[in-house]
């Protein structure tokens, strides 16, 4: 039963993707890994970072200003984090708000609520208003209405009987 241990099996490894087993094959020893790291790019990038930090902050801080004034555009792009924040602000935040407003005002409030919901209520009332003037208050209208209804019903009976009485 799954819930005997709630979320017991939530971290399992699919039989077809044995990633850890794969890793296991590459693992030799701690020392081997240490020596191997010297020839990988990340190691040298780390060294580069440490050196450039030392150069721009301690050795010659003025170089930083010179580079900044020479590569203004690059600096701008880097400073604004490649524009991801603004992308987030404009596209995701404002976009969501705009989308939300659109859905709310147009679809929810206008289409569903105004047209369908209140519209059907209005339709019922409108039909009521439409039928109401039949009630003129004049007796002869009422009598006429009754007689016409009678005629219709009699006609319907005649038609329904297929005129079989003629035969």
């Amino acid at each position: 039963m799954l819930f005997g241990g709630w979320l017991d099996n939530s971290i399992t490894i699919d039989a077809s993707h044995q990633a850890l087993a794969e890793l296991k094959g590459h693992f030799y020893s701690a020392f081997a890994l240490l020596t191997h790291s010297v020839v990988t790019p990340p190691f040298w990038m780390m060294v580069g970072g440490a050196v450039s930090a030392w150069v721009f902050c301690l050795y010659r801080p003025d170089w930083a200003d010179q580079i900044q004034s020479r590569f203004k555009r690059t600096n701008y792009v880097l400073n604004s984090l490649y524009g991801f924040d603004r992308l987030n602000d404009i596209v995701f935040v404002k976009g969501s708000v705009k989308l939300g407003n659109l859905l709310w005002k147009i679809s929810d409030m206008t289409l569903i609520d105004k047209v369908i919901v209140n519209g059907s209520a209005k339709l019922a009332r409108y039909l009521g208003v439409l039928i109401r003037p039949v009630q003129t208050g004049y007796v002869y209208h009422y009598a006429f209405f009754m007689i016409v209804s009678l005629m219709l019903v009699l006609g319907w009976v005649l038609i329904a009987s297929d005129f079989s009485f003629f035969s």
Binding site: S96, V97, L99, G100, N101, L103, W104, S107
Partner: peptide, 10 residues
């Protein structure tokens, strides 16, 4: 989803 976006602008 839709109602989530609508909630956003209330």
């Amino acid at each position: 989803v839709y109602i989530g976006f609508v909630a956003l602008v209330q």
